[in-house]
Design a protein around this nucleic acid. Structure first.
Length: 570
RNA sequence: CGGAGCGUAGCUCAGCCUGGUAGAGCACUUGCUUUGGGAGCAAGACGUCGCAGGUUCGAAUCCUGUCGCUCCGACCA
């Protein structure tokens, strides 16, 4: 491709609505343009990168034995009602109506569609295992689209689904996908690592997310340097000492705490109650009914874990007025002692705790000497707290660390939730009808693209890995006079590389060298070959790897040197 | 959904407080010069100041509403 015939609209300055480096570079390098919030057009260069990533995904899916299909983006609501997700996932749906006013759903994911298809085709255990995948546009009404392609209303996803005749077989399918994902991200030049993850509204037994470390990531990952433990903070656990027991026989005592509003206030003089001797009382509304959630004063509630404990994701923090209606007190003085008519969920770490202090449900008063099992009617104990930096690794006991990351892939072992609901059953060896055991696997293809940029850049622009670069070689003649020695050589190298099947861009613009170099660095072509009168007088051209050093090479060796540089490193 | 900020040329932004001829830089067009890291000079073209009301002799500017965009939050009682 010749630059003058392409559309590569680079920008000197970042558009003001881009915040993070990868979003800025997407726009500045002329890869995408925004249509509206969370909606982007891929320009020719961006599309080339996207196609290369898709191709890597395809090759690895095929290698893992998955079969490519293509499902409709427009879906009937009936199958969502059948799976039970019409209600639980309704917030992410974009819904449209046809001329008869019938409602349709723009697919946010495809478990229901694939399972319906499989239900129609599956009859015998002899057909299993089977895995299917597709690369397709998904639609999600995100609460807040942001950071360009990172969280968009419409995005391209590779989604895959496995069907097996047993739990053990499903585990094998899961492992194949897990391994394929590892290879995919590696081939894209990404340093991604798997972490244990929460299954959330998807349901199912367990899952892993593939994370790309990045300060701008929306996820927090807990990990251990000493062993292999890594988990999303929504899922992570740690070994910590139980709450020290005090005098469990001492009677509850109410004491005045004028002006105390927070846990921290109570740790100061004259009260001096350590945060770990306090019970934090939180009020949540679950389907419009208040519930109390207790964690230790120095701990933080993890809402993702609360989802699992409550068995629903439809809850929210209560408003101040709702709290007053439920407990007769305002935040700052809340407690669960002698609360009988509201369900109380308590974090495991509080089990057996005594000599605790908590609010008295009366402004300006707290209670001390609270023995939680004696004084509070707990409906359910559960792991409800977030792990904090420095706590002991649950595997090896070394201190845990926390870092931010971008989720680029997610694999789930689902079990039979969808196959039972949508009747995807087969006859086993004994002729008995069994629901297939299912797994589902997603890669955010467009997000992966941006994650590569987020990870591979410097002050001058993008540094594309060879595998996904829009063009792998950029030829930069410093003058473009037709017939000149410089231009003739540029054309010759261009023709020879093209004949070798190398995707190469010839910068034939009538611009000053500085402009061409800046643009080549910004877009991030892995290999740049500069041809100018000065070096050509010595029979040389300049080979530069993006982010590497400049190397003068003989003009007749240019093509072979480039081909060598394109070979995969051993 | 709650909070905050921003909407002025293709892009980055100034002007608004204190109402009175709509601006700069970059990009674009033409010409000349220049040609190894985002050139210089000259001339030119490009705007319903997001939209709708209101106040006023007069609104980019003040007021109200609305739409869009961006960020933060949606546990820390």
């Amino acid at each position: 491709m010749r630059w003058t015939q392409a559309l590569i609209p680079t920008l000197k300055e970042s558009p003001s609505d881009a915040e993070i480096v990868s979003h800025k570079l997407l726009l500045r390098a002329g890869l995408v343009r925004k249509l509206s919030g969370g909606l982007y057009t891929f320009l020719p260069l961006g599309l080339r990168v996207l196609r290369k990533i898709e191709q890597i995904v395809r090759e690895e899916m095929d290698r893992a034995g998955a079969l490519e299909v293509l499902m409709p983006a427009l879906q009937p609501p009936e199958i969502w009602q059948q799976s039970g997700r019409y209600e639980t996932a309704s917030e992410v749906f974009y819904k449209v109506r046809d001329r008869a006013k019938k409602e349709w759903i723009l697919g946010p994911t495809h478990e229901e569609v694939i399972t319906t298809m499989v239900a129609g085709e599956l009859s015998s255990y002899r057909q299993l295992p089977k895995s299917f995948y597709q690369i397709q546009t998904k639609f999600r009404d995100e609460i807040r689209p942001r950071f360009g392609l990172m969280r968009a209303k419409e995005f391209i996803m590779k989604d895959a689904y496995s069907f097996d005749s047993s739990d053990e077989a499903a585990q094998v399918s899961y492992q194949k996908m897990y391994d394929a994902y590892t290879r995919i991200f590696e081939r894209c030049g990404l340093k991604a690592f798997p972490v244990e993850a929460d299954t959330g509204v998807m349901g199912g037994k367990f899952s892993h997310e593939f994370m790309v470390p990045a300060e701008t990531g929306e996820n927090e990952v807990v990990y251990c340097d000493a062993c292999s433990y890594a988990a999303n903070i929504e899922k992570a656990t740690s070994k910590i000492a139980g709450t020290p027991a005090g005098d469990s026989a001492a009677a509850i005592e109410k004491f005045a705490t004028p002006g105390v509003k927070t846990i921290e206030d109570l740790t100061k003089a004259p009260y001096e109650v350590a945060a770990q001797q306090q019970i934090k009382t939180l009020v949540y509304m679950v389907e419009d009914k208040p519930v109390l959630v207790l964690v230790r004063g120095d701990h933080q509630l993890n809402e993702a874990k609360l989802v699992g404990t409550l068995g629903t994701a439809t809850f929210r923090a209560a408003t101040v007025d709702e709290i007053f209606a439920a407990l007769g007190a305002y935040p700052g003085s809340l407690g669960a002692v002698s609360v009988k008519d509201l369900p109380v969920y308590a974090d495991e770490i509080l089990r057996g705790a005594s000599s605790m202090t908590t609010g008295a449900n009366e402004k300006g008063f707290h209670l001390r000497n609270v023995s939680i099992e004696r004084d509070i009617q707990v409906k359910q104990w559960a792991d409800l707290r977030s792990v904090q930096v420095g706590e002991a690794c649950p595997k090896c006991g070394e201190p845990l660390k926390v870092r931010r990351a971008i989720e680029v892939g997610h694999v789930f072992k689902l079990g039979t939730k969808y196959t039972e609901a949508l009747n995807a059953v087969y006859s086993d060896e004994a002729g008995k009808q069994q629901p297939a055991v299912m797994g589902c696997y997603g890669i955010g293809v467009t997000r992966t693209l941006q994650a590569v940029i987020e990870q591979c850049n410097d002050k001058d622009g993008i540094i594309w890995p060879l595998s996904v670069a829009p063009y792998r070689v950029c030829i930069t003649p410093l003058g473009i006079v037709p017939g000149s020695a410089v231009m003739a050589l540029a054309e010759k190298i261009y023709a020879e590389l093209s004949a070798q099947g190398v995707d190469v861009l010839l910068d034939d613009r009538d611009d000053r060298p500085g402009v061409k170099f800046k643009d080549a660095d910004l877009v991030g072509f892995p290999i740049r070959i500069a041809i100018g009168e000065k070096s050509l007088a010595k029979g040389e051209v300049e080979l530069k790897l993006r982010g590497g050093v400049l190397k003068a090479i003989k003009q007749e060796e240019a093509v072979s040197e480039i081909l060598a540089a394109l070979k995969p490193q051993p």
